[in-house]
Amino acid sequence: MTTHTRTTGNARAWIMLLLAGAFEIGYALSVGGSQAFTVPSWSIAAIIFFLLTLYFLSAALKTIDVGIGYAVWAGIGAVGAATFGSLLLDQPLTLGQIGWLAVIIGGVVWLKLADSPRFADKQAAAG
């Protein structure tokens, strides 16, 4: 496999993972709106988002290691649900919570950087 093919496949997997994270946010918000699956429209939306997030996560995990992929997916879902829950559902978000959500964002970014081909090449050359 050429470096270009590996890079293209890796980029595609990360796009799939970002989509899975976006659908996870939709799922979390829909579950909240479904009020324990008693509101049909929110319940249907939750099921659709759930199926979409599972599909895109499983597609991404064909290329990305499960530990890294799951951590990034969960981080995107957590930060997105907290942010959009605050903006759309008037759920309170304290300064302390915002700080810890920033830590999650930083961790997700570093996990992505650590999975980049340049970083892997530097690690291989150093080790």
Results as ranks from 00 to 15, higher is better:
13 A>G: 08
51 L>M: 09
62 K>V: 12
15 I>L: 15
49 F>N: 09
80 G>E: 08
94 T>A: 06
16 M>W: 11
6 R>P: 00
70 Y>K: 04
50 F>C: 08
10 N>K: 12
21 G>Y: 07
105 I>W: 09
11 A>H: 10
118 R>D: 04
77 G>P: 03
117 P>N: 03
105 I>K: 01
3 T>I: 04
88 L>S: 02
106 G>T: 10
94 T>P: 01
35 Q>S: 11
19 L>F: 12
42 W>Y: 15
46 A>R: 11
45 A>T: 13
13 A>C: 06
91 Q>H: 12
28 A>P: 00
78 A>N: 05
9 G>A: 10
27 Y>M: 15
11 A>D: 06
66 V>S: 09
97 Q>T: 13
65 D>Q: 05
20 A>D: 03
61 L>V: 07
34 S>K: 12
13 A>Y: 03
41 S>P: 08
89 L>Q: 13
4 H>E: 12
32 G>I: 08
87 L>W: 14
58 S>Y: 06
46 A>S: 15
97 Q>N: 11
53 T>W: 06
30 S>M: 13
68 I>C: 02
124 A>M: 07
109 V>T: 08
20 A>N: 06
74 A>L: 06
94 T>W: 06
99 G>P: 00
47 I>V: 15
127 G>A: 14
15 I>T: 13
73 W>L: 11
127 G>H: 13
11 A>M: 13
90 D>L: 08
100 W>V: 14
94 T>C: 05
32 G>R: 15
28 A>Y: 02
52 L>I: 09
96 G>Y: 04
120 A>L: 14
42 W>G: 03
80 G>L: 09
18 L>G: 14
124 A>K: 11
57 L>P: 00
13 A>E: 06
86 S>I: 04
18 L>C: 14
126 A>V: 09
58 S>A: 14
90 D>P: 00
112 K>C: 05
29 L>V: 06
14 W>H: 14
96 G>Q: 07
41 S>A: 15
61 L>Q: 11
56 F>R: 07
107 G>A: 03
85 G>W: 08
23 F>V: 02
69 G>W: 11
17 L>C: 07
18 L>A: 15
40 P>E: 08
123 Q>N: 08
39 V>K: 13
102 A>K: 00
117 P>I: 02
84 F>Y: 11
56 F>P: 07
61 L>N: 09
90 D>C: 04
97 Q>H: 07
109 V>Y: 02
92 P>C: 06
2 T>Y: 01
11 A>C: 10
4 H>C: 01
123 Q>R: 14
53 T>P: 01
30 S>T: 13
87 L>K: 07
31 V>M: 12
124 A>S: 09
25 I>P: 02
77 G>H: 04
89 L>W: 10
124 A>L: 10
83 T>F: 14
47 I>Y: 05
90 D>H: 14
110 W>T: 12
68 I>L: 10
112 K>D: 01
10 N>E: 14
20 A>P: 01
100 W>I: 14
76 I>S: 06
25 I>Y: 04
72 V>W: 07
35 Q>I: 09
24 E>M: 05
10 N>L: 15
105 I>P: 03
21 G>F: 09
111 L>S: 05
77 G>L: 03
116 S>M: 04
91 Q>V: 10
121 D>L: 11
93 L>R: 05
94 T>M: 07
48 I>N: 01
10 N>V: 01
45 A>L: 15
